[in-house]
Design a protein around this nucleic acid. Sequence first.
RNA 1: GCCGACGUAGCUCAAUGGUAGAGCAGCUGAUUUGUAAUCAGCAGGUUGGGGGUUCAAGUCCUCUCGUCGGCUCCA
Length: 635
Amino acid sequence: MSIKVKLDNGKEAVYPEGTTCFDLYKEKTADNKELLAVLVDGKECDLGQPLPDNSNVALVDFDSPQGADIYRHSASHVLAHAVKRLYPEAKLGIGPAIENGFYYDFEFEEPISSDDLETIEKEMKKIVKERKQIRRREMSREEALRLFEERNEPYKIELIRDLPEDAAISCYEQDDFIDLCAGPHLSHTGMVKAFKLTGLAGAYWRGDERNPMLQRIYGTAFPSKERLQHYLDMLEEAKKRDHRKLGRELELFSLHEEGPGFPFFHNNGTVIWQELTDYWRIEHRRAGYEEIKTPLILNRSLWEQSGHWDHYRDNMYFSQIDEQDFAIKPMNCPGAMLVYRSKMHSYRDLPRRIAEMGIVHRHELSGTLHGLMRVRSFTQDDAHIFMLPDQVESEVAGIIDLMDRIYRVFGFQYRVELSTRPGKAMGTLEMWDKATNLLEKVLLEKGVDYRINDGDGAFYGPKIDFHLEDCLGRSWQCGTIQLDFQMPEKFDLTYIGEDGNKHRPVVIHRVIYGSMERLIALLIEHYGGAFPTWLAPTQVAIIPVTDRSHEYGRQIYDRLKGEGLRVTLDQRNEKVGYKIREAQVNKIPYMLIVGDREVKSGQVAVRHRGEGDLGADDLSNLIEKINKEIEEKII
RNA sequence: GCCGACGUAGCUCAAUGGUAGAGCAGCUGAUUUGUAAUCAGCAGGUUGGGGGUUCAAGUCCUCUCGUCGGCUCCA
């Protein structure tokens, strides 16, 4: 018997029955791709598996979509193998590949410390060197249960019990180590070429805080030492760009014990903040938005009406005024609802796009706070759009356009996700389907590339999320567009239709920046502190060479100030190199060096933080250039 | 909130249980400087906070606050 196989290069070939994927590619690793596994009819398979007849086969290397995951998943098995050798009593949790690496959860008899990682890493290296065969074993549920009972692995048994009735159960075995696993895996442990354990942390079994906390070991693995090193270098670079570090060095903001999670913005950070909101207002006025401001503290009755009292109380701050309960707002919606409800609306008034730079306070768990990224008080660039049902499509499209325009200005790439009905949701299935389909339709019409995030919608409606990617490829959720079926009901919002009757408007809740604090953190890291000139807290530093040129420097300073530029004059008794270094470290876009030569010629010597010495120029030319750069928000 | 680590001058970091130090920043003075750090001097601290062990605590124990890495949650 022979089998027919179609390769990914389009060629068909006939092989004897029992031919494995590995045989197929044995002679064919010449195209410099490291063969890790294969896709048989689109399904990931081990190299050792025999090929079925009439199958389509594609090679999987590290850089194919599944490759890195398979590779790192095998690395996680090597980790677990090493741990079991060193700590035979440790219980295995789960050990998947994740973005940029892998982890494995264990329950140790005695907690290990990060110093132990080195020992574990050494043992892993041994296992890699031993080139242990990795074998797949399929077995019945009973067999699997018996196996892991013998091996005293309660978490594995729990996993097997939760597998669907008809699921094929497979294990992977290397030497005396065996793990419940769907696979696929590399063929032997020697294929794991470069890895590093990167961290140790607590993690609840199955992510549920009611379950025991296991110890999670993080690691990463690459097909070569060079690529591993490259990744580690990137982590170093990320550390250099950390907004908490740059925020302190550039005097943008600070955090204090006296206000955990409540950031203090210093002048430099406030300048950036204001530039961002100024730009935001221009774009929103142009897009037909109104802007409001609503109170920070509102009566309990409002929060009962909005449902926050029941659903969000744990995250709220409270106060008592005249023996009445008040709450500090955790969201802006109820305020916007009151503004809408403060007058009668005709269908002709809609849509009403009501924006608010609203400060919200949320009592987040102490362990989640992180610089400006995760805080307890933040400003949302919120907007609530009240509209007729048949306006939803064009309004959503309008928001998507606005987001795209704004994100482009910062040079962000972004990813879009459509989140659908969660398990516990309000409203009928039909309503959800209709709304979700509508959002999807707009995305398709706009030609937006998106991903479905099943079951991740808000309880009150489906949403589209925008994840911004920074220059290191990390992504952060910023923008979101949420359809809200609940608020109009709860606040009994109405408009008078053409027919003279009252109708229910549709509400969209949306943010573009997300939170000012998070956006600023993201921008700090994205630009590595070197803000484009329009955002830079100081745009020009004037550096006189000696005190003979102080007066000339002062004239230049006054002129630039008059132009509305943010400028400093460095009259300290220091050498030019020293002043330049400091301006450079502070990432000031332009440095103007003025000495005897410039006093004589009436020019300025221009130095740019990125391009270096640009030579002498007339001040008016330079002002024109800088103003254009600011006007066009050149990155 | 939970698991783990950490907390020393404004910042980065030293200090076997035995007199708390350095570099940078700051201040003072000298130097008049041409594209990433001129030299010298001075000052700077209840070692996050409370309690305890000890002849003696930055160091050991305990409580607490905060920070960091995760879990969870989310903008």
